[in-house]
Structures are given as C-alpha cells and as structure tokens.
Amino acid sequence: MNVNSSKSDVIRLIFCSFITKESVAHDMLEALITDINQYSLLLISTTSRNSVQISRLPDKNLNGQPVANILLTDRKLAQELFRKIDGQIENILIDVERKQEINLMEIANEVIKRSRVLPYKPNDVTLEAADQLILHQLGVDLAGKKVLVYGTGNIAFKLALRLLEREVDVLIEGRDPEKIQSIVTTLNMIKPRYSCAVARPHQEHIDFKYDGLISFLSSEKIIETKMSIHIKPSGFAIDGGIGNFQGTFIAAALEKDVSVLRLDVRLGNPFLFAGITSLSDENEFFNTVIGSNQVGSMKLVAGGVIGEAGSIIVDRIKSPTQIIGIANGYGGLKDEKQFTEEDRKNLHYAKETFI
C-alpha cells in the first residue's frame, strides 16, 4: 500500500510539474503578445542556446517604425503563437536559419493562413553589424590588419571570409582543432585569387600582435585573460556572442586601452530594412524595372531578362529612359553590323516612342 501510494505520489508530482510548466509557458506567451496587433511587422527567430523557450526581445526600429521581436525554441509554443497572431499582424518575418531541430518556416506555413509570411536571415544582419563595427574601429582601409575570430560557426566563418576579402589576415580560434583547420583551408581556397591576406589557425606562441578580437560563441565566459596578450594597445575586443568574455579578460583588455564592446545588432538594421523592402509587394525593381513587354511586333526586355534575338533591351520595363541595345538571343548584344532591317526599324520606333 505504501509502495503504491509512493508511486501514485511520484506520478502525480510529475504530472503536476508538466502541467505547471505548460501553464507557465502558455501564460508567458499570452503576456508577450497582448499588444501584438499594434505592430505591422513581427520578427520571429530562434537561437542555438536552449536556455529559453520563448521570450520577447526589445523592439527594433526600422525606418522609424517599431517592430516586435520574439525569440522561441519550442515547437508547441511556436504552433500556439502562430495560431494566436495569424491575422493580428500584417507581416511576419520568420528566421529560416536552422539553429536547432525546430523548423520555424515549416510550422509557420502549416499554421499561418491570413498574415503574410516572409523569410529572413538574422545571422546575415549580425554579420553586417559586425562588419560595420570593425570598420568603425579600424577605419575603412583594413589591408594588412590582423583580426582574431574566435568561433567556428556560421557567423564566424562568414565574417572571417568578409575580412579576408577586405585584405585582413585572419586568425581562427575555437574548441575543435580539426574544424579550425578545415575552416582555414576552405577560407584560403575561396578567398579572392589575388588577395594577399591569409587565414591561419591561432597559436598562443605567435610573435605578432593583432589589431582586434571578435567572438561568436554560444557559451558564456569562454574568452580568458590570456587572449588579451596579443591584442595591440588601442585595438578592439568585440563580444559577438554576448557573454563570451570573462571578467578578468575585460579587465586586462581595458588595462591595455583596448576598446571592449558588445556587438549591437542595431548596426545591421539598415540591411534588415533593405531585405524586407526587397520582399515587399511594393518593390520598385520587380514592379517597374524587370520584365518583358510586347509592343506590336517589337519585344522589350529589362532588368536582366535574357530576350530572344531582336528584343530591344531597355533600362526599365515601365517608362524606359534608355535603350541598352538589341539582344543577340544568348545573353549579349548584337553588334550594329548584325542588325537586320527589322532590328533597325524597331530600334528607331523604340527611340521615337519611349526615349
């Protein structure tokens, strides 16, 4: 009897704990979206960290407009969230980068029927923010500089490549030596052919100084005091993963007059806004530039459309202002010696009609 009672108590305790967690998460979700219908745009993203199921991040400001921002990592909460906000907000941007098993875009496409769902890549926004901050710290001409990139993930790799493209020597540090070497090999393989910059594994015994350090790690307090040894005075240390630096590292870096910064991704907002604009129904390029149009026997093409031979290539399909030439049918322009009588007639008509 006591054994059975004990088992019952355990089962009841587990059940109550599950219900409590579910209830807390549900209540948290309700609290997060009380004002969601006041926004015209919502960003929903995920993270590689497992510490938070759902949270409301600070609003972003894009082109003067507040944008709601929610982070979540749980599939059931994602389904419930999407059901509740569907139709309450006009545009929902979904993080398409798979940082965990959860696939936000797949869930959104299953659940959301009234709001407009658009993809976005927050890692790219973070990359642009990091690039801008480094340019601010070191100046626009980075040739010959040396930067340590601590991390071997998506953003770290992209930033390392960006720095190599800017002629910066890049040192890669991380926890997996084999992965570090693979990344270094790949970076040196795909960098611009004539770039003098080189990627290499970081080694503590190196005898040269680097101009800055930037970390992108999913763990906290990884960057130790010794990592400050080779940073030049008046160099920089950027915490891109937020919480990567140990207190002793920060103190040692500040002692050397190193600028210690946390990466503020608001630096990337102009790039985020540009990406959103490119996906909108009002995108000028897709509405007025690219396309093809038949005018009598003459065909106009613009915006990269490869026309058949004889098509008139113009600068924009709506209200063109410039004639580029006559298509040769395989992606280039006809030489004037190749013009047919029909080509000359259509070219004259186009100039008289549109330009």
Rank of each mutant, 00 (worst) to 15 (best):
Q137C: 15
S215G: 04
Q338R: 06
F245Q: 03
K7W: 10
V258F: 06
Q65T: 09
I250C: 11
S218C: 02
T248P: 00
Q88V: 00
D343Q: 07
A252Y: 03
K76E: 14
I180S: 01
A251D: 13
N244F: 00
A143G: 13
N69W: 05
L81T: 05
D207Y: 02
L159D: 10
K299P: 00
Y150Q: 03
S51L: 12
E255W: 02
G291N: 05
A237F: 03
N188Y: 09
D176N: 15
E342C: 01
E204Y: 07
K99L: 14
F18Q: 08
I190H: 09
L333V: 01
D343L: 08
K121F: 11
T46P: 04
A350C: 09
I326V: 15
S219K: 12
P320H: 11
F157R: 13
L261W: 04
K334L: 14
N346W: 08
G240N: 07
G64R: 05
L71I: 05
A25C: 04
E110A: 13
L163A: 07
T185L: 11
D315S: 06
I276C: 15
P177T: 08
N37F: 09
L217V: 05
G144L: 03
I276V: 14
A160G: 13
Q338N: 11
E220Y: 03
G243N: 05
H26L: 10
D343C: 06
A129N: 05
L300F: 13
R262P: 00
I222E: 07
S5G: 05
M28E: 14
A251R: 12
L62G: 10
G275E: 15
I44S: 01
S17T: 10
K209C: 07
G151V: 00
T288S: 15
S8M: 12
I112Y: 08
S319E: 15
L159G: 09
I206M: 15
I326T: 02
I222D: 00
L71A: 03
Q137S: 12
L254W: 04
A130K: 04
S319R: 12
N154R: 12
R262I: 05
A78K: 00
P270N: 11
S17F: 10
C16Q: 13
T152L: 02
K226M: 04
L104E: 02
G310R: 06
V314C: 09
L133P: 00
T353M: 14
E97D: 12
L272H: 06
P66G: 02
E22T: 00
T288N: 15
I190L: 10
V147G: 04
R175M: 06
R262H: 07
I242R: 12
D207E: 14
I94F: 07
S40V: 01
S292Q: 15
R116L: 09
K121D: 06
C196M: 08
H205T: 11
N346K: 11
D207L: 12
T277R: 13
I326W: 01
N63L: 10
L138C: 11
S215A: 13
N287E: 14
L72D: 03
R83T: 07
M298C: 09
A309H: 06
V117D: 04
I183E: 05
N346F: 14
A160T: 01
L164H: 02
N328A: 03
G144Y: 06
A350Y: 08
